[in-house]
Design a protein around this nucleic acid. Structure first.
Length: 563
RNA sequence: UGGGAGAUCGUUCAACGGCAGGACAACGGACUCUGACUCCGUGAAUCAAGGUUCAAAUCCUUGUCUCCCAGCCA
């Protein structure tokens, strides 16, 4: 982390900026993050947020937040608000520079009029199908629209009437007059205004014509005096058009578009369309379902902004298509949480243990470190008594070699307390399942090694049955069964992981009942958990598993099967 | 079959004509009252073929593969 602060990030975009600065093109760097408010931000957006705000911070410049709300369909205030929340939570600040493309509509209209006056734009009466037909194909040039040579006066008049609402939706568009034979399809007289009477979430029915992205975006950048307009690779084809509008209409310094590869992550999907489908078809509980790769979902899951930022720094910025291993994200989360999450004990799948030689009714307060490497994080007391719960996995009747936990004839250390020794087990008559274990404890071993020098290798966690509190624990796993659901054949929803959520009732140490929403803990030997911000109640805490601990035992245990 | 872009360890990012390096993942070991953390170690790559050069991942030529573009979406 300090390393990163000392040596600032670099990548091909920052190199371009360095060159531009060296060449004296600008005296300050201005970037922008331009989401369309028609969905929640996801980890891919977070990459862009970190890039744009990160560059602004590094170069002591500015980064604007601009809602790119030029198509009212699907846009809403809910998304505007969630986007702001998420960016703030990620740790970035746009200060007073929140802008809306919809605030530029009048200016954009004037730009369009200028284009018409210069003979560079015309009103076209072709319908959508006809425009498509006239556009040609990837290998054949298009044909000029029959309306291409209307007079400036007629175009001015018609465009004013479009604005005034005199024409039906879809009946006419304004087009830039460029080149129908261009090998770049985006240059074949692109539509720059369409008629749409859907009503805008912000400005209502004020406008019935809306500018298209290619027109609005570059000019919004220009109006905001953006120096470097950073976007994703799929806009590379649009750059000539971006430059065309800017060169036609803007005097003085012009923004420069730079494209980088969007993030793809294994075992999830990152396209807005697919995420919307998951939400609308109720395949997840909402945009902030902890399994979602959305910022809101990751927040609710318990990921920290620091971990997400670190992840974004580590994946780098380049132009290669990529599919980043989600293990890297999980690594960043563990790395951060290991430092700051206080430890606690919780038993997820309980097995009752009775300590035969422990006095009935006796309770001892065991002093437990909140962090094994950080004494400054303090200690807490956890009650110990005759009847405990341990994890079912921590007992085996016929343990394999290398197994260090409890079994017939074995001893094990109870974390932060005594060494106990197996005596007998009791089975449920009906099911044959083990219902309880009887053990004895060694009173000499409270927070001390056995005085006779014998070695006790295994350490397991526990809670006192009488004192533990029940909690709902949600065990989240990857949302999809395959590494690249978006790239696979067939419907991506068929590839959802049916085991992505398992809910258990766990026993947690009593202090956890008072844990604040969104606080995070390491349940020792299990994983990191976060108090759910929506569903947790003081009388019934709800924990989300953020990420499991690395588990090298699981690999050893799986070995026979692997062979 | 047009135009644009990209090919480096399993993954990802670097190396900007001069010893192919880091991170994650994997594997082996040490330590351990968390099979965690930490520490030490191992294996692992320049799309292909030619050319230029004392020297090529990098420059040139040809080829191959992948991605993007034919919304009145962004």
């Amino acid at each position: 982390m300090t390393e990163q602060d000392v040596s600032p990030q670099s990548d091909f975009i920052r190199e371009i900026i360095d060159d531009d600065l060296k060449a004296g093109k600008h005296d300050a760097v201005a970037t922008r993050f331009p989401p369309e408010p028609n969905g929640y931000l996801h980890i891919g957006h977070a990459k862009s947020v970190c890039l744009n705000f990160g560059i602004a911070a590094q170069y002591k410049g500015t980064c604007n937040l601009r809602m790119d709300d030029t198509d009212p369909a699907g846009e809403s205030l809910e998304f505007v608000e969630s986007i702001q929340n998420d960016i703030r939570w990620l740790g970035f600040d746009w200060k007073d520079r929140l802008f809306f493309a919809s605030d530029y509509f009048e200016a954009l209209y004037q730009f369009a009029m200028t284009l018409i006056r210069r003979g560079k734009a015309y009103v076209c009466d072709l319908n959508a199908d006809e425009i498509r037909a006239y556009r040609g194909t990837l290998t054949e040039p298009g044909r000029n629209s029959p309306y291409r040579d209307r007079s400036v006066e007629e175009n001015l008049d018609l465009f004013a009437k479009m604005r005034a609402g005199e024409f039906e939706d879809g009946s006419r568009v304004l087009r830039a007059k460029i080149d129908m034979a261009s090998p770049n399809v985006t240059m074949r007289d692109p539509v720059i205004y369409r008629i749409k009477r859907s009503g805008h979430y912000r400005i209502g029915d004020k406008w019935v014509i809306y500018p298209m992205y290619d027109f609005a975006h570059c000019l919004s950048d220009s109006v905001e005096k953006i120096t470097h307009s950073i976007c994703t690779l799929e806009f590379e084809n649009n750059r000539p058009l971006y430059d065309w509008f800017v060169n036609e209409l803007i005097e003085g310094p012009k923004p420069r578009q730079i494209e980088f590869a969007r993030l793809n992550l294994t075992y999830t999907v990152l396209s807005k369309r697919r995420l919307i489908e998951l939400v609308e078809n109720r395949m997840v509980s909402g945009w902030d379902d902890p399994r979602m790769p959305t910022v809101a979902g990751m927040r609710r899951r318990g990921y920290t902004p620091e971990a997400i930022r670190e992840f974004c720094a580590r994946i780098g910025v380049a132009k290669n298509d990529n599919l980043v291993d989600i293990a890297l994200l999980e690594h960043c989360v563990r790395e951060d949480l290991n430092e700051r999450a206080p430890r606690a004990m919780a038993v997820l799948k309980p097995l009752k243990v009775i300590i035969d030689n422990y006095p009935e009714g006796q309770v001892e307060e065991m002093e437990c470190a909140n962090h094994p490497q950080k004494p400054e994080m303090g200690t807490r007391k956890v009650p110990f008594s005759r009847v405990l719960y341990i994890e079912r996995d921590d007992f085996m009747e016929a343990p394999p070699k290398k197994y260090k936990r409890l079994g017939p004839g074995r001893e094990v250390r109870l974390r932060n307390s005594y060494v106990i020794k197996f005596v007998s087990l009791i089975r449920d008559e009906a099911t044959g399942e083990i219902s309880e274990l009887h053990c004895t404890y060694d009173p000499e071993t409270r927070n001390a090694p056995p005085p006779d020098g014998r070695k006790v290798d295994g350490v397991i966690h526990w809670v006192s049955a009488e004192h533990a509190v029940p909690a709902t624990v949600r065990l989240y796993d990857r949302l999809f069964r395959v590494p690249d659901p978006a790239g696979a054949e067939g419907k991506f929803t068929d590839l959802l992981n049916p085991g992505s959520l398992e809910v258990v009732t766990a026993w947690v140490e009593p202090g956890l009942a008072a844990a604040a929403p969104e606080s995070r803990f390491q349940f020792e030997r299990i994983g990191y958990f976060c108090v759910d911000m929506k569903d947790s109640l003081p009388e019934r805490p709800v924990f989300n598993r953020i990420v499991s601990l690395r588990d090298s035992w699981a690999k050893i245990a799986a070995e026979p099967a692997r062979k």
